[in-house]
Amino acid sequence: MKEIAEFSPNEGFLSEIINAIPSGIFVTDRENTIMMINKAGAAMVGRTPGDCFDRKCYEIFDTPMCQTEACTCRKAIEKESVNTGQTVLRLAGKEIPIEYASRPLRNLEGEIIGCVEHFIDISDRLEKERIILEQQEQLLKKREEDIRHLQDEILELSTPVIEVWDGILALPLVGTLDSHRAKIAMERLLEAIERTRSSFVIIDITGVPTVDAEVANHIIQTIDAARLMGSEAILTGISPHIARTIAKLDVRLGDITVRGRMTDALHLAINALNSSRSALDTLKKDLGG
């Protein structure tokens, strides 16, 4: 105990230094009695070092962990090493966030006689951290928005429905088809069919690099949808690579009209359109003849 007593407050150069430190430092014995405290530590709870001397530390400082298992001094002494953490200091109805570090104090014989605790007010730091976090979140949100916007833009760009002829639509698919894109392409195609009353749709997959079972099913579903609308779909632009995949996947292409090039598909559709006459015309002709 003698060693601590030697550094009693207001005494000597060392205590001047300790008092000059802007954060709180105090020393307790094993029974939590304050043996020494610096000015900043006492000032944090609106006291002077003289007020605090020889009183229990939990009488001076009120934190949620005082007089519990979590007491940092108790922990430091038990562990015989440094114990650090964060808590709040309750003062006049307010809570000041603090960060603390405690270390057991030994006498010259090496036995633990108490604990040194150092603590700082981190309200400013937490406030800054909160602001940084907020800004980060805002940035992330903005980036997500940007990405979503770009994705929408790409979707818009990548599924154009073109009227190539009276009553003939073309849907050139470019890039990889996922479920989302396939669904959007299908909806846009159906809307275009309804709007333009086109009886032929040419789906061109020259720009699709690879086809797996999922993509093949999307294409077939789009063709089915066009059929239900009353429009005939012609699939063109199947590359040798995709043809092999389709053969391997055993996808049913039997009832789908396939042409090699877009030109062939156009020929087929235009011829079919030119030759079509109303059943009523035929009937009239039959009746007349």
Binding site: L228, G230, A279, L280, T282
Partner: peptide
């Protein structure tokens, strides 16, 4: 089979009758 509207439907049937 399917057709866009009545008119196209009649055309489709007409094609088959022809």
């Amino acid at each position: 089979d399917f057709a866009l509207d009545l008119e196209q439907g009649l055309k489709k049937i007409g094609r088959c009758i022809e």
